[in-house]
Every structure is written in structure tokens, then in C-alpha cells.
């Protein structure tokens, strides 16, 4: 009997790992990795959040329930994770406050893993956001949530094909019932530790001329702002004429957004009518 082998066998058994999950609630001290939960509104991000952290972030069946970032923690296989539940957003190019919170965090908060929660019953619309997120980060996982509901509606999603098409791991879940959470944990762990390196297919092919423009602009950005991640993404937004990104570059704020520890304080009272 080889003991070492037995231990290994245990480690790969899901039953062992269930016991391995420690829900840490709001104890955020000394976390090793930061995991962001992104996705369209009402896809169950908060439910996934609760399942992982043991917190009871209020969930409700309506889009727009989460308007601020919620943070919690869990520990799994000796690593401590900070989990950030972001407000739902249809796009990374929009303008409202709650969607801005999500966009800034994925862009500049540099999460170690971004879990994109998608609604299996509305895959096409949800993929729009997923593809946008995959343009700015490699370390992403797609959490194909609400598969129980999809089943009820007679919708089947070939998750392996999806994973192949996107180039990132896809984990089917029904978070309300706790189904698939185990696989999700395992995948988060693999991606965070680098055991699995997702290679998202940057599907949207650019025309050669545009590609050249992005490259040259990104180079300038990188030399001006050495700490900037996602220089290519910022370059593309500049070429598009995205007002917020333009003003962030003008003021140099684009680098300070890097230290996004505070939620941007938004005030609506001033400037409406004075």
C-alpha cells in the first residue's frame, strides 16, 4: 500500500474537497488571490457569491439588485481567496454608475481570476459581455449558471464546445441548488495557481490597419504609463473615442484607477441644478 498515492487519490476526490472549502465570510485578511464575479444582471452572481463565502448577500429575482461591490472570502486547498461580487452589466462600454463599478474593477482592479457568470437560458446575449471581458483578461472562467432552468425550458448547452470556442474553462452550475459549485471551486483554484492557463480566443479579428494603429498607440501608452495593464484595450477605446477613457488619459487618472480599493464615490446632487 503506497500511502503517498492514497493521499493523492483523496485529494482528487470531490468529497475530500468539499470538506476543503472553508467559508470565511467577511474575514478578508491575508488573501492570496482576488476573484471577481462578473456577468449580466440577474444571472445569479450573488447566489454564487453566497455559495462560496457563506455570506448572505441579499439575493432577489430582479436585474439591478447589486449596485455596489460586495466582498467576501473563502479558503480552498490551503489558499485564501477574496471574492468580489460586481454589479451586473450588459456591456463594458456603458455609462451608468453601477456598470462603471464593474468595468473599473475588471479593467484596473486586476483580479487574479474573473468568473463570468452567464445565464444558460439566454446564452447569446450573455456572450456579448463574456467576449468583451475576454478581450481584457486571460484569467477568466465562464460559469454557465441556471442550467436547471435551462433544462426545464428544454435548452441544452454543449459546454465543451463552448469552452473550446472561447478558449477558457466552462463550468455548468445551478448555484441555487449548490450544483457545480465544487467544480467551480476547483477551476478557480486551477486558474489562480496557474495549473490551468486559459487561452481566450481573441475572436474579433481586426483589420490590419486597425491592428497597426492599436499596436502603435498601445506602445505609446505603455511607455507613458508603465504600470498600465490592458494597454491594447485602452488604445482601442481611445481610437473609438470613448470619452471617459480619453479624460482618464488626459488627467493621468488612468494609472490611479489601478489602486482601486475604494468604490468610486458618486454624487448626483451637484451639477444637476445649482
Amino acid at each position: 500500500m503506497n500511502t503517498a498515492q492514497t493521499t493523492r487519490a483523496c485529494e482528487t476526490c470531490p468529497a475530500h474537497n468539499v470538506a476543503n472549502l472553508v467559508k470565511l465570510g467577511i474575514n478578508l485578511e491575508g488573501t492570496d488571490y482576488v476573484v471577481a464575479l462578473a456577468g449580466n444582471p440577474n444571472t445569479g452572481k450573488s447566489t454564487v457569491f453566497n455559495a462560496l463565502t457563506g455570506l448572505r448577500q441579499h439575493t432577489g429575482n430582479w436585474p439591478g439588485k447589486t449596485v455596489t461591490r460586495a466582498e467576501g472570502a473563502f479558503s480552498y486547498s490551503d489558499k485564501r481567496y477574496k471574492l468580489v461580487d460586481l454589479p451586473g452589466t450588459y456591456s463594458l462600454l456603458s455609462t451608468s454608475t453601477d456598470e462603471e463599478v464593474a468595468r473599473n474593477f475588471i479593467l484596473f482592479g486586476q483580479p487574479d481570476v474573473t468568473v463570468i457568470v452567464v445565464d444558460a437560458t439566454r446564452l447569446e446575449r450573455n456572450l456579448n459581455l463574456a467576449l468583451q471581458v475576454l478581450e481584457i483578461t486571460d484569467r477568466a472562467i465562464v460559469c454557465l449558471n441556471l442550467i436547471d432552468e435551462a433544462q426545464r425550458l428544454g435548452i441544452a448547452v454543449a459546454e465543451r464546445t463552448l469552452a473550446k470556442d472561447l478558449g477558457v474553462p466552462v463550468v455548468p452550475t445551478a448555484a441555487r441548488r449548490g450544483i457545480g459549485i465544487q467544480d467551480l471551486l476547483h477551476t478557480i483554484h486551477d486558474v489562480a495557481t496557474g495549473a490551468v492557463i486559459p487561452k481566450p480566443k481573441r475572436i474579433v479579428k481586426h483589420a490590419p490597419q486597425l491592428e497597426k494603429a492599436i499596436g502603435s498607440l498601445a506602445e505609446s501608452l505603455q511607455s507613458k504609463f508603465p504600470g498600465l495593464t490592458n494597454a491594447r484595450w485602452v488604445a482601442l477605446r481611445l481610437l473609438e473615442g470613448d470619452d471617459r477613457i480619453i479624460s482618464a488619459v488626459r488627467t493621468g487618472e488612468i494609472t490611479s484607477i489601478l489602486s482601486l480599493t475604494e468604490l468610486p464615490r458618486e454624487t448626483v446632487g451637484e451639477g444637476v441644478l445649482e
Partner: peptide, 11 residues
């Protein structure tokens, strides 16, 4: 692209 992928994987 989203619609192409969705067509492929959803039945």
C-alpha cells in the same frame, strides 16, 4: 461572434 457561438452550442 456571440450569435455564431450560441448557435453552435445551444440546442
Amino acid at each position: 461572434e456571440a450569435s455564431r457561438i450560441a448557435d453552435r452550442v445551444v440546442t
